[in-house]
Simulated assay, not measured.
Amino acid sequence: MIKKTLYFSNPTYLSLKNNQLVIKLPEVEKNDSLPDSFKIKNVQTIPIEDIGIVMIDNKQITFTSGVMEALLENNCALITCDSRSMPQGLLLPLEQNTTQSERFTAQINASIPLKKQLWQQTIQMKIENQASVLRTCRNEEVRNMLKWANDVKSGDSDNLEGRAAIYYWRTLFPDIDNFTRGREGVPPNNLLNYGYAILRAIVARSLVSSGLLPTLGIHHHNRYNAYCLADDIMEPYRPFVDRLVVEIMNSGVDFQELSKEIKVKLLNIPVLDVMINGQRSPLMIAVGQTTASLAKCYLGELRKIVYPYFE
């Protein structure tokens, strides 16, 4: 079942009753002139087990510790936003897999050659997916991209990821002079930042569910980054976000500011269609297959990560 993504941008009361998330609006609850029957009708409930991601984007949202406990018990990712409405914090459960200790040990003891091979597979798939985006969105000839993908060595020692990225971003947004990808860059970097934050939460949530530590990456290493492995595994998924951003831009909306309309579209990332293992699947489900295959690679049961691709 596809888990729901809930986004709260207005003052809200969140509580728990009978394993249901109860949603109330303060302006309704505090208004003594409204009849109780009206207040009851304006209360919404959602089964906790149906929720995968909750995004909190207002400083006047109140939720009980029971809500937080129930969400974490059901492997829900809780995202908090800063004053600019950009995702800032991520809360995940500490344990969601019955063989977590065994998998932690295998992950920690993974050899350098294995990590390099996994990174090679990751970058190859990322570049191939970037090539698909350029082909479908910009009608570009992508033989160079496919050659770079094919030439990626163990550990990407030649940094073909970087070479491909320069060409990719310049070609994907040809109407923006010298476009470069960066957190503080010009739009549509704002859309990409928001979309990648959602994607990162999806991947981190799935890594925990697969009994892995999101902190210990196969390539990314940063003492200040608690989600190095999530940043690794999300790489081949980024082009799916990129294509959605291009579609949003092509719709004619003003993308200079991250409007509510744009956020709503980006919150559909968990249910984007991807191809994986020869079948069409929602992105969130596909991520689960990817992280499960990664765990098997650490355990010596597989030699290749299962990644998505475009149809």
Results as ranks from 00 to 15, higher is better:
residue 9 S to R: 12
residue 203 V to C: 04
residue 243 R to G: 00
residue 42 N to Y: 12
residue 241 V to M: 04
residue 283 L to T: 09
residue 24 K to T: 10
residue 308 P to Y: 03
residue 145 M to G: 03
residue 253 V to Q: 11
residue 96 Q to Y: 11
residue 40 I to W: 07
residue 194 Y to C: 04
residue 145 M to D: 14
residue 117 Q to H: 13
residue 292 A to T: 14
residue 229 L to P: 01
residue 298 Y to V: 03
residue 96 Q to D: 13
residue 96 Q to V: 00
residue 114 L to N: 06
residue 169 W to T: 09
residue 98 T to I: 14
residue 72 L to T: 08
residue 76 C to S: 07
residue 131 A to M: 01
residue 308 P to W: 04
residue 262 I to Q: 01
residue 79 I to P: 07
residue 206 S to T: 05
residue 35 P to K: 15
residue 259 S to R: 06
residue 278 G to C: 10
residue 108 I to T: 12
residue 174 P to L: 00
residue 262 I to R: 02
residue 143 R to Q: 12
residue 44 Q to W: 13
residue 64 T to K: 06
residue 31 N to I: 10
residue 2 I to P: 15
residue 152 V to K: 03
residue 78 L to I: 15
residue 39 K to D: 08
residue 160 L to K: 13
residue 103 R to W: 09
residue 10 N to S: 15
residue 147 K to D: 07
residue 146 L to K: 10
residue 74 N to F: 10
residue 198 I to A: 01
residue 148 W to H: 05
residue 151 D to T: 11
residue 310 F to T: 09
residue 238 R to T: 06
residue 174 P to C: 01
residue 230 A to F: 02
residue 103 R to V: 04
residue 11 P to F: 04
residue 91 L to H: 10
residue 292 A to C: 07
residue 100 Q to V: 11
residue 97 N to H: 15
residue 171 T to C: 03
residue 29 E to H: 06
residue 138 R to Q: 11
residue 9 S to Q: 12
residue 201 A to Y: 06
residue 137 C to F: 01
residue 269 I to T: 11
residue 228 C to L: 03
residue 104 F to L: 13
residue 220 H to E: 06
residue 217 G to D: 02
residue 269 I to N: 07
residue 31 N to F: 09
residue 205 R to D: 08
residue 159 N to S: 11
residue 115 K to A: 12
residue 249 M to C: 12
residue 171 T to F: 00
residue 64 T to N: 00
residue 95 E to P: 01
residue 20 Q to I: 01
residue 136 T to D: 08
residue 6 L to S: 07
residue 118 L to Q: 06
residue 303 R to P: 00
residue 161 E to A: 05
residue 69 E to R: 14
residue 257 E to V: 13
residue 76 C to I: 11
residue 19 N to S: 12
residue 253 V to D: 10
residue 173 F to Q: 07
residue 151 D to R: 12
residue 126 K to F: 06
residue 292 A to F: 05
residue 194 Y to N: 05
residue 177 D to K: 15
residue 218 I to S: 06
residue 219 H to K: 13
residue 241 V to G: 04
residue 208 V to S: 06
residue 125 M to Q: 15
residue 252 G to M: 00
residue 169 W to D: 08
residue 179 F to M: 08
residue 203 V to N: 10
residue 77 A to T: 05
residue 306 V to A: 15
residue 128 E to D: 08
residue 311 E to W: 10
residue 21 L to D: 02
residue 44 Q to I: 11
